[in-house]
Write a protein that binds this DNA or RNA. Structure first.
Lengths: 218, 218, 218, 218
DNA sequence: AATGAATGAGAATTCATTCAT
DNA sequence: AATGAATGAATTCTCATTCAT
């Protein structure tokens, strides 16, 4: 009944609010569903979990690919925002390494989506590509600042750093890796990025390799 | 000569040779197809590219999952053999880093298959898991020797090293990365693995970071 | 009137009516198709004869087994309803024998479905089993009343009566049996069920064996 | 090696013996397999259980239908032989009812094959039809003798008796029927076939209905 | 004669997408 | 704008049958 009322009075207004809310809910659900099941997860499951009809999903996103792209765009945008925020709020070295850590930590269970991180860079069209490029640019800024601050060695450049970022994030997304191992793997990469022999592993929060766990190397 | 003999028996001998060949061809094609399109690639395409009927694929591998597993097993086995070979033919440090490089170089276009590298460790059943574990063990040996030889720092352990191996290999598998970038990313990781501040980047074949390419950081 | 109202809502009302109709048509067709060709008949043929796409069949019945079960349930339910109706509308003896006759007459071309009549009793799960059991109970009531009315001998019990019911119905379902033969076969069974030597074949509608047909016993 | 020897010496002789044996084994297995799984059971399973290659089955029986027909023919022939034997060795009444009982008892688990008993009568071609007709003729002789001996009422004819035979046999083939129930169902039919009011249930071996079992009519 | 490999024609089932309300 | 029904194309897998040895 309330719905009928809405359509009678505010007309487009209320509808648009509903629609906007629906869109958001669909995106949320899609991020989780595709994150878990990969792109082979079904659109219908997204609809079901979002509590809307399948046709509603297709009204908001004309194809499955469009839905996937929207999910990616939102994800890239968020990450870029975080990178940009770190850039202005934190000291350069911390900012850079924190973002690295954040991406790895965040990656858990998002598996299949991050898949597109690098790929997206390939096809020059599409919003996702653009969003991805903007993220990359933001990471570039983080890197540059960190290098200027002497927290990262000068002879590395964005492409390889970004590749490592993606690599570790993707690996982290895979199950079976406990946090300890993730941290230790990151520490190695950070060491490789550290500016100079005498200033190794200036990762601020995790300056040294965590003590080896008791369990022997499997 | 032996083949001729076989055809003399007039029995199922020659047949079996054919079948063996078919099986091999199917595996080869499957490795490529699944490597490119992920596990969602169709079995029918494998059949078509292998030049056999779809039923022939299913005769050799009763389910799609079995086919995938066979592909993985073969891949793991090959890598393990290479690791084992390096272990006995080359000096420990070179062996370790060469294997790392080899995995990354080899990874190109094998994308989705390598997916299972880490995952496989999870489910304790299946031949692929076993093969994966054996590969991991071989890598463990490489690492241990390299550490004893002082080519890799002592405070890293297999889990994180293996994770990095998988991570870089996976990232490398993704298109869009030119060899130069791959090398530079690897160099960073190798630096992180190098034993001591004053002995950085003892990666034997690539002791220093390659000179930055002319193209600006994108 | 209610239907018109429904179409006014502009909503899913009319749709649902269509869908209901489709479901019914599919069931009708399935009953015939499976009746003729057994459970090995193809779902696609059901779809084709029902004039819907194959996916529509699977939308209504998620598996072929579910479709088959639905067909059985409907059939059992109808028979039970008829049995129950006879129980209250007709004198006990007539009711019992009429139901017997009805089942046999109705069985024509329903072959393979009736297959499940007895079998269903086996697996304790599934709606079909439940419906089958309810039918059996209704037949039990018919039998009991007929016995109390003296129309069926007292020393027979439901299991064997039900078995005969199924047996004759199944045999009748097989082609090649003209009605005359069916009637004469039934008459024999009815005689066996009749209460007493001096009151043989009190089957009310067919008190005596029909006169032997002219054609010689083949 | 022995096989090679055979083919060298006796040539066709030994081969034919082998082939004959194979044919028999295949038929045996087919009867069981199709009896259990219906005609939808796979020819390959027959081959496997018979311990021969699939091609061997097809060498002996050019199509699956031919295999099925051969199974039926053998079955019909056996039954006819038993009928004929009873005809000359036993008193007419006993012979008739014993054959009835035998068919029912034998039917267990042969389900799907007996399916064809009546059907076969339809298509006038095929060996199975012929064998079926010969069986029917043999049953006709049993019936005639039994009637002449006064063990079966005079006013029944072969078609309906044969129909009942098939019906009860088929019903018996279905699981879930314990022997007691089968016997009691048969007793009813036999009563219906008995010659006269005062001579009910002269079934020789089972003159009276077995005492009702304790369990109440379900 | 016997065999196992190969095969194409189905069969069940799923899914992205469109349609009518 | 939202919905659920409908759909055909694709996918995995099975099976009777044929081929080459």
């Amino acid at each position: 009944m309330s719905t009928s009322d809405m359509s009678q009075t505010g007309d487009g207004r209320a509808r648009r609010v509903d629609a906007r809310a629906n869109r958001g809910r669909i995106l949320d659900v899609a991020e989780e569903v595709f994150g878990k099941g990969g792109e082979s997860a079904s659109t219908e499951e997204v609809a079901r979990l979002a509590g809307v009809g399948i046709a509603t999903v297709f009204r908001h996103f004309p194809t499955k690919a469009a839905l996937l792209e929207a999910v990616l765009v939102r994800r890239f945008d968020r990450l870029r925002e975080q990178a940009e925020a770190l850039l202005v709020t934190t000291d350069p070295g911390t900012a850079f390494f924190d973002f690295f850590r954040h991406l790895v930590a965040d990656a858990v269970t998002k598996i299949a989506i991050t898949e597109a991180l690098l790929d997206a860079g390939g096809d020059s069209d599409g919003e996702a590509t653009q969003a991805s490029n903007e993220l990359r640019r933001a990471v570039g800024a983080l890197l540059q600042h960190a290098q200027q601050a002497g927290a990262v060695r000068d002879d590395v450049e964005l492409p390889e750093v970004y590749a490592l970022l993606v690599a570790t994030s993707r690996a982290a997304a895979h199950t079976n890796l406990d946090d300890e191992v993730k941290a230790r793997a990151l520490a190695i990469v950070f060491d490789g990025l550290a500016p100079h022999p005498n200033a190794r592993a200036q990762t601020h929060h995790q300056p040294e390799l965590p003590q080896p766990h008791s369990q022997p190397s499997t």
